[in-house]
């Protein structure tokens, strides 16, 4: 894989922080999954299970449950912080992540507006992706907490 851009590194780092807060068990898997997310976000976020691969294990238990959403949330947060997009739906995450490959913009100072936008964006994304309002609220709280630490 080519060297990650600064924007991509931000997404991976922020996702790692989210996972450390919400699902520390997934940290090791996230180290690998993050690379796949930057390459093919659609496949990582897809709910489709490939349990029927020829000579595959046939095991379709999803181990990394929160990591894909954490990565998508981190991408949304990045977009909100650089002020480009205020609302990223699950469908648009892939385009956003692909844009990170060429993005040179780095998040600047975390303003109240940017923080609020990122928290709202994270909530919308998680609801859009999972339909779970409680999980969306938790993601929103964690994003808010992490951005607060960065001030």
């Amino acid at each position: 894989m080519a060297e990650a851009t600064a924007a991509q590194k931000f997404v991976l780092d922020f996702a790692r922080e989210i996972v450390a807060e919400l699902a520390p068990d997934e940290a090791l898997g996230l180290a690998v999954l993050g690379e796949g997310f930057l390459q093919d976000p659609d496949r990582v976020l897809s709910a489709r299970v490939r349990s029927g691969a020829t000579l595959g294990s046939g095991i379709d238990t999803q181990i990394l449950v929160l990591s894909p959403i954490a990565l998508a949330t981190a991408a949304v947060v990045h977009e909100c912080l650089v002020g480009e997009v205020t609302r990223v739906t699950a469908r648009r995450v892939a385009r956003t992540v692909k844009g990170l490959r060429r993005s040179t913009a780095l998040p600047g100072e975390v303003t109240d507006e940017a923080r609020t936008a990122a928290v709202d964006g994270a909530r919308v994304l998680v609801i859009d992706h999972t339909g779970d309002a409680d999980l969306a609220e938790r993601y929103g709280q964690v994003v808010g907490l992490l951005l607060e630490r960065r001030r």
Binding site: L33, Q39, V49, A53, L55, S57, I59, T61, I63, V65
Partner: peptide
């Protein structure tokens, strides 16, 4: 090999 996009506990021989 590693499949970086596979979030399941899967493997495959090829």
């Amino acid at each position: 090999y590693l499949d970086p996009a596979g979030s399941c506990a899967g493997g495959v021989a090829f």
